[in-house]
Nucleic acid binder design. Structure first.
Lengths: 224, 224
DNA sequence: AAACAACCTGACCAGATGGTCAACAAGCTC
DNA sequence: GAGCTTGTTGACCATCTGGTCAGGTTGTTT
């Protein structure tokens, strides 16, 4: 039984928690970045391992040597993106200031869309396809998170800190408005005529969204 | 006598004695509907003529007989969607009531997303892919339309009818918020736990968006 | 330098891809 | 029913698909 480089060997290595060689790390990073771009643009079916390999500057066989399979690569990217997402979902409490929380929410979501546009689009493509890989996450973890926030939003409304709007629609509004600048980047750039959005543009948009949404929900920034 | 899964639709048509042009019309309609669904879910690359044919209940050859090529079919669908889009872009003037115009804008866009969710997702997939077929439309026709509206919004702001927000971001906000319920339907359903959004749900969402956005922009409905 | 693991890749495979085509069936007009 | 248009479809083609594999090179450890 020859123990040549094989998926099994890789799995063993990873399970052993070996601080992967520098080569492996570099190549995997390259492959993940390339794959995120291709999957984001063409969806799971539309992406080809060949195209990913070319974008990563490697032969197809080499890509498969590292990632095992197209499906595994896709799942891994999805998980990475969900991890980024979860990272910014800090807890809030009824005693927090609604204005602060909502602004932080908008800002962090906007930053995520900006820092990882390909990841955002990857997520969008997955949802467009009917969320075949994420159904569980959506109706489980994420749903719980939304309900938790919704409860707090309702309490704020009861205390007169904001209008009694349906919190779930509010969360969707913030998600969609921020996600838009990653997912529909091509449209945004085409219409504005810009080659790309500058930091200043993004700051302006963030300020606009914060202003409109907070005011629209009757949330007034706390006085100093 | 073909014994293979003969499309029920065609047999029905034949039995009813529907003639010539009617057959073409019926089959094309069936094909376009099936193709819209498949392209919407998997994007241009990810969609296969085979899958479209199966969804339409026809042999692949027959589909190609009617539509010529995959590319042609895709372009045709895109054009049909742009036509629907253009149909609701009526002109507005500075003398119109901002509240009425914005509400009508939100409502009609929401209705479009609801009436043609597959078309909306098809559009989204095209933009995700970098808008290879729509670049011209975006930076031409659509851009002009946005600028025209923007001019009027600014005039309203000057007249004190609304806050001086950047009109382009406002338009994007409305687009994204409404588009969301078509494009991210799988997410919305997963999180809300519903099987589908009822008319009442949609009405509630529309009312929410209208309320928040109008208030957020300092637009007050005109007094009677 | 020997041994061994990690890394690399061209050749190959079965199946799917978009598209063509020849042959035939069904309808319509005269 | 002849003649023509339209509709229908299985067989076929070159190319691409995800994935395997044998056999090689490189790097590290002893």
């Amino acid at each position: 039984m020859t123990e040549v480089a094989s998926p099994a060997a890789i799995r063993r290595a990873r399970e052993r928690g070996e601080a992967g060689g520098a080569t492996r790390e570099r190549n995997e990073r390259e492959i993940l970045a390339a794959a995120e771009k291709i999957f984001a643009a063409h969806g799971y079916r539309g992406a080809s391992v060949q195209a990913i390999a070319e974008a990563a500057g490697l032969p197809k066989s080499n890509v498969l040597y590292y990632v095992g399979s197209k499906r595994g690569l896709y799942v891994r990217l999805l998980e990475r993106m969900m991890a980024r997402w979860n990272a910014l979902l800090d807890d809030i409490s009824v005693d927090d200031d609604p204005a602060e929380v909502l602004e932080a929410f908008i800002r962090s979501k906007m930053a995520l869309s900006r820092r990882h546009p390909e990841g955002s689009r990857l997520f969008a493509a997955e949802i467009l396809a009917g969320a075949p890989f994420l159904q569980e996450y959506l109706s489980g973890e994420l749903r719980g998170w939304v309900e938790e926030r919704a409860r707090i939003f309702r309490q704020w409304a009861e205390r007169g800190l904001m209008d009694p709007v349906e919190p779930v629609w509010l969360i969707f509004l913030i998600w969609s408005a921020t996600q838009h600048y990653a997912d529909f980047e091509a449209q945004v750039l085409g219409i504005t005529g810009k080659g790309e959005l500058s930091d200043a543009d993004v700051e302006q948009i963030t300020a606009f969204l914060t202003r409109v949404i907070l005011k629209g929900c009757g949330v007034t920034p706390r006085e100093a």
